[in-house]
Design a protein around this nucleic acid. Sequence first.
DNA 1: CTGAAAAGGTCAAAGAAAGACAATTATCAG
DNA 2: CTGATAATTGTCTTTCTTTGACCTTTTCAG
Lengths: 159, 159
Amino acid sequence: MRLSDTIEAFIKQMLQEEQMEIELKRNELAEYFHCAPSQINYVLATRFTPDHGYMTSSQRGGGGYIRIVRVCRSANDQIAYLIRERIGESLDAQSAQVLCAQLAESKAISLEDARLIAAAVSPQALSVPIPEGVKDAMRAKIFKTMLLTIARQKNALNG
Amino acid sequence: MRLSDTIEAFIKQMLQEEQMEIELKRNELAEYFHCAPSQINYVLATRFTPDHGYMTSSQRGGGGYIRIVRVCRSANDQIAYLIRERIGESLDAQSAQVLCAQLAESKAISLEDARLIAAAVSPQALSVPIPEGVKDAMRAKIFKTMLLTIARQKNALNG
DNA sequence: CTGAAAAGGTCAAAGAAAGACAATTATCAG
DNA sequence: CTGATAATTGTCTTTCTTTGACCTTTTCAG
C-alpha cells in the first residue's frame, strides 16, 4: 500500500473518531510516518479537496497547525450544487470519479448508483476517437442527466 | 501453447481461487513469464474485455496495479446475451430505448436502473457536436459498461 | 522593534509504475 | 507459398508518488 493511502486512512480515522473537524501538526505527522513534510501537503491536495468533501486551512509560525473540516450538506443540496454549479459544461474523468465516490460516501446517493454513474462516464465507456475536450463536455452532460434522473426517482418515493 | 494463452489461464486461475476480484502488478507478472510488460496489456485487451465479462482498471505511478473483476454470468442470462451478442459496436438511440424498456419489463434489471441507462444514452445526454455514427459507438460502449456494472452488483448480493 | 526560531507552503526533480503504439515475428487458412 | 491475422517486443509517453531545497508567515524573546 502506498504511503499516501496510509496517511489518508489515518486522517479519516481521526475524523471519524473525533468529529467533523480536526487539527494536526504537519511536522509531527511527517515524523510519525517517516516522510517529508511536504508529503502531507500532497495527501491533502490529492485527497482532501472540496470535491472530496473537505475544507482545509492552516496557520504558520509558532504553534502552527493544519485544520481539516468535513463539509456536510443534505443529499438534495449536494446534488443541486453539483448540477447547478460544480459540473458545468465540462468535467474530466478524474474529477468525475472523485465526485462519484464522494456522493456515495456522504450517502447523497446509493453506492450502486454512484458506481453506475462512474461506469457511464469512465474512460472505457467513452473510448471513441474524439478530442478529449469533447469527451469532457459529454461527461458533464451524462453526469448531470443521470443525477437528475436519480433525484427524480428519490422524490417519487418520498413524495 | 502460446504465451498469451498461458497468461490468460494463469489470471483466470487466480480469479477462480481467490475471488471475483484480483489485483496484480504488471511488471511482476511480466517478469514471471519472461515477457515484455506490454504483453500483459495485450492479454487484457484481447481476453478480458467487457464482452468477455470482465472489467479492468488500473493505477499508474508508485504502488501501481491492475485490477480485474470477473462478472460471473450464467450463459443464458439476458444481460450476458446483450453484452456479448446483441449490442455490438454500435447502438442507435431508439434501439437503446427499446432495450431498456424490455430489460425492465422482463425484470432482468430494475426499473430504476433501466431509467438510468436510458438517461445516460439519451440524445440529450449525448448532445455534443460529433458524427451520429460515433455517438452510436459510444452509446454501445456506455450501455455495455453500465450493464456489466449492474450485473456485478447483482451477483455481489447473491455470492 | 527586531531578528531568530518555528511553523507551514511551493515547486521542481527523481522515481515508480502503467499505457499507447509502432515494428517485428509467428501462425494459419486458402 | 502467401496474405491476413495474432502474438511479441521495444520505445516513448503519461501519471502518480516521494523527496528535497528554498520561501513565507507567525511568534516571541530581548
